[in-house]
Every structure is written in C-alpha cells, then in structure tokens.
Amino acid sequence: MTTFNDREKAFENMYAHDQEMQFRIQARRNRLLGEWAAVRMGLTPEETDAYAKAVVQADFEEAGDEDVIRKLLGDMTQAGVDIAEADVRAALEEQQVAARRQFIEAP
C-alpha cells in the first residue's frame, strides 16, 4: 500500500507543479502582451511597466483570455490605435510561445 500512496503523492506533486508553471507562463505571457500593446500605444517606459502589470491583473477578472483581449482592445482603441481583434489574438499566441520559451530556456 505504501508504494501506491507514494505514487499518488508523486502524481499530486507533479500536477501541482504543472499548474504552477502554467500560471507563471500565463502571467508572463500577459506581461509580454501588455508590453507589446504599450509600444503600439506609445507609452513611456514607466507607463509601459504599469500597463503590463495592469494587463496581468486583468486576467484575474474571469476564466479564459477574453478579459485580457477586451482590455487590450478597449485601451488601444481609446489610445487611437487602429487594431483588429484578430491581431490581438495573434499577438496573444505569439507571446504565449515567447513566455513558454523563456521558462524553458531559464537556467
């Protein structure tokens, strides 16, 4: 029975680790996405940092990516940037790849 309990504990630990990594990758992706949008809106470096943090916070409003996409589209439209939702979704995917790569390549 001990072997079964050990395996169960190992799987639980692996699942918890995977969930934590997924959360970190998604938070990094959102930060990169915020930086991407800030460049297009012409924000200063200080404003860019604050905006990237705001995008990360926006992801906690509801499950999924729709809250982040809505925020970016609204903010960019308000800033006078002509951008389509498809462009934001494409950037989201690109930043997801970049964020995952950063975690894989991290020492």
Rank of each mutant, 00 (worst) to 15 (best):
V56I: 14
R31V: 04
L32F: 06
A58L: 06
V68T: 09
Q95D: 11
A63G: 01
E47W: 03
D82Y: 06
A86R: 08
V39A: 14
E46T: 11
D59W: 11
F11C: 04
D87F: 12
Q102S: 14
E35M: 13
F4W: 11
R24V: 11
E93T: 07
Q78L: 09
A106F: 15
E93K: 08
N13C: 11
F11T: 07
R24F: 15
M76K: 00
P107F: 15
L92E: 01
E8Y: 05
A27V: 06
A106G: 12
N13Q: 12
A106Y: 15
E12T: 07
G34D: 11
A50G: 03
Y51D: 13
G74F: 01
T48W: 09
A84H: 03
F23C: 00
G74Q: 04
Y15R: 14
T3D: 14
A16M: 07
T3W: 10
P45L: 04
E94W: 12
E93S: 12
T77M: 09
L32P: 00
T77H: 14
M41D: 05
A16I: 09
E20Y: 10
E62A: 08
L33Q: 03
E61P: 01
G64F: 14
G64K: 10
Q26K: 03
D6A: 08
M14E: 15
A99G: 11
D82N: 06
V97H: 09
G42K: 02
P107N: 14
A50D: 12
L32W: 04
V81C: 00
A52N: 01
A50E: 10
M21P: 04
R31H: 09
E46V: 07
M41H: 05
L72N: 02
T44G: 13
L43T: 07
R29Y: 02
A58P: 01
I25G: 04
K53E: 15
Q102A: 13
Q95S: 08
A58T: 01
R101I: 12
I83L: 06
K53V: 12
V55S: 00
A79T: 03
R29I: 02
Q19N: 03
G74N: 07
G80K: 01
A52D: 05
I25Q: 11
R89N: 10
D6W: 08
A91S: 02
D75K: 00
I69T: 12
Q96I: 01
L33E: 02
A91F: 09
R29F: 06
A50R: 10
I104D: 15
A86V: 09
D59C: 08
G34Q: 05
E105I: 06
P45F: 02
E12F: 05
A84F: 02
K9M: 14
F103E: 13
A54K: 03
E93M: 13
E105C: 11
F103K: 02
Y15G: 02
T48C: 13
V55M: 04
D18L: 12
V97R: 07
L72D: 00
D59A: 10
R40I: 03
N5A: 14
V56N: 04
